[in-house]
Amino acid sequence: MPGQRWLGLLTAFLCLAAPAQEMSLRTVQQAGAAVKYDPTGRPHKPGLCMEILRAVEKAEPGLRFTGLAQHVPLKRVERLLAEGQVDAFFCLLKSPERERQWRYAPVPLYVIRHVVVQRADDTRHLDTLAELATASRAKRVLVARGTAIARHLLAADVAIAEVGSEREALQMLNMGRADVMYGQDINLRHHIADSGLGERMKIGRAVFQEEPQFLAMRADLPAAVEERLTQALRKLERDGVLRQIGDKYR
């Protein structure tokens, strides 16, 4: 027994001492999601998910992500993951439908908050989904097309109008074609600032829901690779790096 115990300890030591195996993982950038991946490529702010990706590479020597020259829409990101054509993607929300198609690392990368945007002169406070549902009877609540947010609102009996983008929704709100838009706080703050509508818009005081974003991985990614990714993320979480990156984009 003592000999077996020493053999186990020696094996574990050698595994720790051995240099990390070089490995390339296929990924892509999400198009039309400047908060996650900034197409302007500014070095100081390349996008929240891009910064987390680079931090993982730094925390886990030997891991490298390829395919970042590709900018693809969310629907295609999902298809590539489901078909196993990419190995990992930063960052995605969980849903039962998605979890049937691919896996998620257990460490949350950052949290998004569901909020509403109204014109600055709108004195109403919409603090619950029930109040939002009532308000939507007069004018539908705007949401970006192709997100899970629409299902969440419909389940709460909120009348919605899906539009092409948050930027389009802001312009409609500014022109009075709608009174409320609903979305993710980080994205909305970015688009309000980028559109120059900061003085004309306000974000409501209520947080309707909080959802963590995660690293998604193809369903058949080897367990050893998933473990390397998870340990890198745990280190970034423990060292406060994930929180710092998230705060930078709020």
Rank of each mutant, 00 (worst) to 15 (best):
P2N: 11
G3N: 13
G3L: 13
Q4I: 15
Q4M: 13
Q4K: 14
R5E: 12
R5A: 14
R5K: 14
R5I: 10
L7S: 13
L7P: 00
L7D: 15
L7V: 12
L7C: 06
L7Y: 08
G8S: 09
G8H: 03
G8D: 08
L9Y: 11
L10P: 06
L10F: 11
T11W: 13
T11H: 07
A12W: 14
A12G: 10
A12C: 13
A12T: 08
A12K: 08
L14A: 12
L14W: 12
L14I: 13
C15D: 07
C15G: 09
C15A: 14
L16S: 07
A17S: 11
P19V: 01
P19D: 03
A20R: 04
A20H: 02
Q21S: 09
E22Q: 12
E22M: 10
M23Y: 00
M23W: 02
M23H: 08
M23E: 05
S24P: 05
S24G: 03
L25C: 08
R26P: 08
R26C: 05
R26Y: 02
T27W: 07
T27Q: 07
V28T: 12
V28K: 02
V28A: 11
V28I: 14
V28F: 04
Q29N: 15
Q29C: 13
G32F: 09
G32N: 10
G32E: 12
A33Y: 05
A33G: 04
A34F: 03
A34Q: 05
A34K: 03
V35K: 05
V35S: 03
V35G: 02
V35N: 04
K36Q: 06
K36Y: 06
D38K: 02
D38S: 09
D38Y: 01
P39Q: 03
T40S: 13
T40F: 07
T40Q: 13
G41T: 03
R42S: 02
R42G: 00
P43R: 06
P43F: 02
P43L: 05
P43W: 02
P43S: 07
H44A: 11
H44W: 03
H44R: 08
